[in-house]
Design a protein around this nucleic acid. Structure first.
Lengths: 148, 148
DNA sequence: GATCCTGTTGCAACTGGTCGCAATCGCCAT
DNA sequence: ATGGCGATTGCGACCAGTTGCAACAGGATC
C-alpha cells in the first residue's frame, strides 16, 4: 500500500514524471533541495545547496527551474514585504494557502491559515468570474512583541 | 475653505512638509510624476518622466524616493504576479486597499474592493495580535474572457 | 546499444535594483 | 542674507534575475 502521495518525499520528482517533464541531473539536485529544505529558501541558498549535490548546476538553471515549478503550481513565490532587500523566497506549495506576515521591526515571519481567506477567494472568483490559479497575501506590520 | 486634503493635488508634497521631510528639486519632480500619473508605473517609466521635469534625477534617487514613500505608507508596491518579468509597479495609496488580479494569459490587471478583505485583516490583527501597516493581496489566474 | 530529435544547459551579456562614498544642497539659526 | 550641518544626491561598482545562443543530454525508437 503506497503512502499518501501529497507528502511523500520525492513528490516533486514524481510530479515531473507524471506530467512527462524531462528529468535531468541538475533538476534532480534542485528538486531534492526543495523537498528536504525547511521553508523560505532564496535563490542563492538554493543554488549553493544544489551545487553540493551537482557542482555543474548554474544560476540560470536554478531560476529556470523555479519558473517551471511556479508554472506547474508546485511552489509559491514570496517576497516577504521586501524586508531584506529585493530578493525572493520560495516554498513548496502545501495543501492549504496561507498568509505571510512580516514584522517590520524584528523581521520575524509568521504564517496564518484562515477560512475567511478562502471565502474571499471564492468571492473574487464568483463576482469577477476569475479562475484563480495562484494567490498571495502578504502583510507587513508589527508583531505582538514589537508593537509595545 | 480648503479642499479635502485626501485627494488634493500636491498631497504628497504636503505630506512631506508636515512630517518635516526635506524637499529637494529631485523629489519634487518624482512626487509630481507620482501624483499626476495614471496607475501602475514602474521604476523605469517613473525615472524617464521625472527626468523630463528635472534632467539631473538619477536612477538611485528614484529608488530611494520610492522606498521613502513606501516607509511612510504613501504608495503601494506591486509585482502583479511577475507577469512581465521581475519588475515592480507603484501606485498611490488610496483610501481603501484593493486586491489586484492579473490574467496569466492576456496580462490584464483588474482591481477589486471587498469587505471580506477588511474582515480578514481584522481577523489577522486580532488573532495574531499583529498591528498591520501594509498589506498586499495579488491573485493570478484567468479572466472571464480568457478562461473560455 | 546506437541514433535522432527536442528540451535543457552553461555561458556571457544584459536589465533591474542596491550600496558606499565624496560632493552638494535644504533648511534652520543667526 | 549668510553660514554651517546633516540629509540627500550622483556616481560607480556591485548583487539579483533574465535572455539568446551554441553545445549537450534525456529518452523514445529502432
Amino acid at each position: 500500500m503506497p503512502l499518501p502521495k501529497t507528502e511523500m518525499p520525492g513528490r516533486l520528482q514524481a510530479h515531473f514524471r507524471e506530467r512527462g517533464i524531462r528529468m535531468t541531473q541538475q533538476r534532480r539536485a534542485i528538486l531534492q533541495v526543495m523537498e528536504t529544505a525547511s521553508k523560505h529558501l532564496d535563490a542563492a541558498q538554493l543554488l549553493r545547496k544544489a551545487q553540493k549535490l551537482d557542482a555543474s548546476v548554474d544560476r540560470s538553471t536554478v531560476y529556470r527551474t523555479l519558473q517551471l515549478l511556479k508554472r506547474h503550481g508546485l511552489i509559491d513565490e514570496l517576497d516577504l514585504m521586501h524586508i531584506h532587500g529585493e530578493g525572493h523566497y520560495y516554498e513548496r506549495k502545501l495543501n492549504r494557502d496561507h498568509i505571510h506576515m512580516a514584522c517590520l521591526r524584528c523581521g520575524k515571519i509568521m504564517e496564518f491559515v484562515s477560512d475567511i481567506f478562502e471565502n474571499l477567494k471564492g468571492q473574487v472568483a464568483k463576482d469577477c468570474r476569475f479562475r484563480i490559479v495562484v494567490s498571495r497575501l502578504e502583510i507587513g506590520g508589527y508583531c505582538a512583541a514589537c508593537s509595545k
